[in-house]
Design a protein around this nucleic acid. Structure first.
Lengths: 343, 343
DNA sequence: TGTTAGCACTCTCAAGTCTTGAGTGCTAAT
DNA sequence: ATTAGCACTCAAGACTTGAGAGTGCTAACA
């Protein structure tokens, strides 16, 4: 357990380092308004803090830098108790236009978030497994091709074009669509592949032998694909952070961000509410010098998405956590309204 | 005009520099198999080439580096005459799956192109102004919201969700959709806004007073937006190029690429066929150290898109130009088939 | 006994100096 | 016309040096 004085000094060190990115020395600390001890005294305290692992030196005679454990303590004991559920009306301006699309909204939110913080924001769109088919439609484009359009009860639209097998006539196609609609309406996306294989495919065969093949394609195109949309805002923001001076870091970071699956995986968490991953606590080696703050939002009861901010470990935790907390609440609220309307 | 010997040496210098990124010295040149002169002789030739502006020194006693004028000459007089219309079957593997989507195809092409070259590829989707409305549909999601879906005769799908004005009933909505379909079918996207305002809006008013407002939104959402899709592949590739060692270059480059409008603008060209922009010839300052090779492809007669590769001025022009040339032919062919099917 | 001043010590960072190697330009010989 | 030879230039890396920031320890002080 830390004494009041130790905690105070730890706090000062972290705050200063977050701002300056430079190791903090005893003299600098003693000059702060909130500090009334001499540099020598500070040094003693710092030695203690270092022994306990909360701060460390970059070399034998350098100032101190917060360690991962230090940040952890700071976040858990200093920041967390002061965060209150809040609502900063971040989205209010975005929703001014009542016709705005949900996808657009999320996209915009990501941009705003990154602008506000100067970090990189990542938003995972809501999972769609539990949404249900509202309408499935096939629009013929020519004799050879058509577009299949799927609309869910959440207003989400998926579409794919495909070629029409030769031995199927326009009237057959129409019948097929009717059957599909009848059978699939109200089925959740999660159950869709199963329903199709067990119930629908056999029916299809009545109309056309080769349709099975086409249908398999459609099925895979629609439903076996990663259905999670990823929105990223302000990747270039991180380039302005001093820890990004090493070109190799930039390389590996961008290479990581290019791999969507990896990013999605990084954000997915069963956990509720705010989660803070500092440095090595992150799953991926590429961001072991970063901190990732994630917050989940909910759509209805089950489906949820995640919003996150990625920045250097030397991150403005208070600001970021407050912001994410508010935004996730606001998104949950917005989605609740949306969902209620649909139900 | 350059003598044979001068041209030979210019060529050797450029080829060597393209490979190594280091200034080329007279001794290194004289050791090449294709060169039978001594270093001293080479030096005389190099002095001439420098005087003519085709090569330059980085400092008074360095080897020579091709100048922009040098690259230009090389591309115009060495590469261009040897390029023959070709078809490398780049897309063949991609189209193996006959059900593939056009958008997917373009996306994949961008990836392949960047993998093949280690530069950044940029593809502008085909302009849709000349495609015609195939079907416009409104799917009600709840009492308060609906999704509007527009399908064009090229198989392109656009969709937006919107809220339904309170004083409109489901049956009204159905009537509206019928009217819209009837009036708008076959209208090109370019003419759509005009047709809507002159013919349709007045009709709308019969059904509901406030619908004008909603409709304006839909119209703007669909048709006043940048309708060009941009596909970018392998931005990180450039990070491995030695000219990207300066972190500030990376910054400004990424910031430029983040601005889609700017990139689209950069690629748009009335010109047909292959275009090579070297260094300062580029419109944007941010890429004055780069070369941009663009090739256009056509859809039917009018609409066209652009594929491009962005790399350092020290670029493998021969390879890149051959590749782009082939791919643009293949894309035109593929689109021709597609389009023919639709007509 | 907790706090502080003082001092020797350590390490980084930037500036300055040296050395090496690659490359040039010029001249004189072939 | 071509080439060998030589003096000269410059960049880049290695090494040195000094200043500055910071530490730890000790002894004195309230």
């Amino acid at each position: 357990m830390l004494t009041d004085r130790q905690l105070l000094i730890l706090q000062v060190i972290i705050d200063d380092f977050i701002e300056s990115a430079h190791p903090v020395g005893s003299r600098a600390i003693s000059k702060k308004d909130e500090i009334s001890y001499s540099a020598a005294t500070i040094r003693n305290v710092m030695a203690d803090l270092e022994e306990m692992g909360y701060i460390e030196k970059t070399h034998s005679s350098s100032g101190r830098v917060p360690s991962q454990k230090g940040y952890r303590y700071y976040v858990d004991h200093v920041i967390a108790p002061t965060i209150k559920e809040g609502n900063l009306s971040i989205m209010k301006d975005l929703i001014r236009d009542e016709f705005i699309d949900f996808e657009k909204l999320v996209q915009k939110s990501a941009e705003v978030l990154s602008d506000l913080t100067n970090y990189t924001s990542i938003i995972l769109g809501p999972e769609l497994f539990e949404t249900k088919v509202k309408q499935l439609q096939i629009v013929p484009i020519s004799d050879y091709s058509a577009v299949a359009i799927l609309v869910t009860d959440s207003g989400h639209v998926e579409h794919r074009s495909f070629t029409i097998p030769e031995d199927i006539s326009p009237s057959d196609l129409e019948k097929l669509v009717n059957i599909l609609n009848e059978r699939l309406k109200g089925v959740s996306l999660a159950r869709l592949p199963q329903v199709i294989t067990t119930e629908v495919v056999s029916l299809m065969k009545v109309y056309v032998r080769d349709f099975e093949k086409s249908f398999n394609y459609l099925q895979s195109a629609f439903f076996q694909e990663q259905p999670v949309k990823l929105y990223i805002g302000g990747i270039t923001n991180l380039l302005t952070q001093p820890e990004f001076n090493d070109i190799n870091k930039v390389r590996s970071f961008y290479q990581m961000m290019e791999n969507e699956d990896q990013v999605v995986n990084l954000l997915k968490t069963p956990q509720h509410g705010i989660r803070v991953s500092i440095g090595n606590e992150n799953k991926l080696d590429e961001i072991k010098d970063f901190s990732l703050i994630t917050a989940s939002y909910q759509l209805g009861n089950e489906q949820k998405g995640t919003i996150a901010l990625l920045g250097p470990t030397r991150m403005e935790y208070r600001k970021v956590i407050t912001l994410l907390n508010s935004l996730s609440n606001e998104m949950t609220d917005a989605l609740y309204l949306w969902y209620k309307n649909n139900g």
